[in-house]
């Protein structure tokens, strides 16, 4: 099964590995983004991060969720069971709308801002 490198290191891993991976993220990224899923809601629903930030979604519901960009702008997550996480590193500034591909009434967005010194827009 093909998965993004970072996601596969987190998904289905033992708790120790999850913590280790989180530490890695913290070192690699100045402002890691975190989105939790509780009661079929993305929290925060809208998240603004700097380009280069790795955003990690964690499912804290007792049911499966899955992350997909509304226009396929980033790679969709595998099915996320309880306590599974999925991460994606946003390098290109822009607004990314996404939803749960099992429960499409669940929607959220990631706004990626250019880092200082870059004029990149989308």
């Amino acid at each position: 099964m093909l998965r993004p490198l970072i996601a596969s290191s987190v998904l289905g891993a033992a708790i120790g590995s999850v913590l280790a991976a989180s530490v890695l993220f913290a070192r690699a990224e100045a402002t890691p983004g975190t989105v939790f899923i509780d009661n079929f809601i993305f929290n925060p629903k809208g998240l603004t991060v700097k380009a280069g930030t790795t955003v990690t979604w964690t499912n804290r519901d007792d049911i499966v969720h899955g992350i997909a960009a509304s226009n396929n702008a980033f790679k969709k997550s595998p099915a996320m069971d309880t306590d599974d996480s999925y991460s994606f590193t946003f390098t290109t500034p822009g607004t990314y709308q996404y939803f749960c591909y099992l429960h499409p009434q669940m929607v959220g967005s990631i706004v990626v801002e250019a880092t200082t010194g870059s004029n990149a827009t989308q």
Binding site: P104, Q105, V107
Partner: peptide
Amino acid sequence: IGLVNTFDLKAGGL
């Protein structure tokens, strides 16, 4: 008639 309404789900939709 067996229908499929779970494959092509749209953001914000049913």
